[in-house]
Nucleic acid binder design. Structure first.
Lengths: 246, 246
DNA sequence: GCTTAAAAGCGTAGGTCATACGCATAGGTG
DNA sequence: CACCTATGCGTATGACCTACGCTTTTAAGC
């Protein structure tokens, strides 16, 4: 059994599979400690405030000590992205696929709303962290009763994840901007568009603006039921499942 | 006519509506010059290489000169995000909504593929730049023949934009990771998952892994037709339009 | 044409950041 | 007990954004 060959560094990092040192001084920290401290900083002051110095200070260590456990700050961000979402709870048994995915989306959004900085972490590869995989697994499980092939399930879930992350990113960025500059949003947005949108240059958009869609508050939906695009996507999944069953 | 009241700073910046100075030295630069130089840097060396110093150097000016034209680097990023995508070309006449949106998505992806750094710029508010609005307008126009309300059209287009941006971001990040570390992807990903995914802990995912879906290359679709999630979303839109017509 | 003030240019410098390097130190291993 | 290895940590470097203040240029008003 040659099991220890060639696992990408990212994987061994996220799964805590570093070979344990048998010689030398004992480590005073663990990767999990560092990750937890970094998450605390991000929770308190945002992702921008996460610096190696600040994380180390919170742990009572010197800045450079962290580099004994993490190759770079990017490594730390990867660890944070996995740790912050936690393991996915099991879905209730016996749900139809659509109910199951809706519950799943609601939970994803709840997690991302609690830690808005997660969606700001740049992604550099396919998901490999244990928590990420557990969320992936739950969504796949929700499609268990359908007649979809494994490949189709993967496509459905990846698309859903993409959509939800994009939606969360947009809506969280908007709410951040709103918090920083409240009077510029809401009615102001519609007014600004009305001032700037030339009916000749932007005919379709102009019709929308004059119809008053933008005059109210910025929609800013955190409710799943209000997520118009999600409904459309799930309708598309329903059509696919219908075709698969026919 | 009180036209000059209360436009958000962001809007006047993006539309070049600053009041022209009547006193003092003449500016040797324009906001457009600065934006163009910054875009050139990003094209050549990536978004991370865009610094005020480097942009100023390319323009033959001192670093601090730029702050006479932009309030902060964030302002410059906003300008870049709008300038980089260019104005949206008009869609061919007489297309069905689905054909029109598909062409539109293909063009969006072509633009984002040409300038991958655009999707890395953090968003801080709803779109107000002229080029962003023109893209928005074209997509709305593609839905002209349908019976959807203006509000529904906005929802459909915003969802589509969210999805396409998310998909582009993911796929571009993956291809970046692939370029930096080719041997870790492709078959390696499937192998790593197989090593790490416990059937008891991740039952649904385990089924997918053993079915061999991940054993090939990472899909990495740039083709619209290969974008599984997009098809699902447009199917959902079709269902909505069908309901609206009935 | 002369004065004046507003605005642009630019150098300096402060603060923060990631991280490379070298040396001291502690704790298994032989 | 001696050695070797891996960690702890201070220093240092280079890059970054941007606040500040002085100088220079230009147009407006008399």
């Amino acid at each position: 059994m040659t099991e220890e060959i060639d696992l990408p560094a990212e994987v061994t990092l996220l799964w805590g599979l570093r070979e344990t040192a048998r010689r030398g001084r004992k480590p005073s920290l663990t990767v999990a400690d560092i990750t937890r401290a970094a998450v605390e900083v991000a929770d308190a002051e945002g992702l921008g405030a996460v610096s190696m110095a600040k994380v180390a200070e919170r742990l009572g260590n010197a800045t450079m000590a962290l580099y004994r456990y993490v190759k770079s700050k990017n490594d730390l961000l990867l660890l944070m992205a996995d740790a912050a979402i936690g393991p996915a709870p099991a879905l209730p048994e016996g749900l139809e696929w659509r109910e199951g995915l809706t519950v799943w989306v609601r939970r994803v959004l709840a997690v991302l709303r609690a830690r808005p900085w997660v969606v700001q972490i740049p992604i550099s590869g396919p998901p490999v962290g244990p928590n990420n995989l557990s969320w992936f697994d739950r969504a796949l499980g929700a499609l268990g009763g359908t007649g979809l092939s494994e490949e189709e399930k993967v496509g459905v879930v990846m698309g859903l994840l993409t959509y939800v992350q994009g939606e969360a990113r947009l809506s969280l960025d908007l709410s951040t901007g709103y918090r920083e500059n409240p009077e510029a949003f809401g009615r102001q947005y519609g007014l600004a568009l009305a001032r700037v949108v030339d009916p000749l240059r932007f005919p379709a958009l102009s019709r929308v603006v004059t119809s008053g869609v933008f005059d109210g508050e910025v929609p800013y939906d955190d409710e799943v039921d209000g997520m118009f695009g999600l409904t459309l996507y799930l309708d598309g999944v329903a059509a696919l499942i219908g075709r698969a069953e026919a």
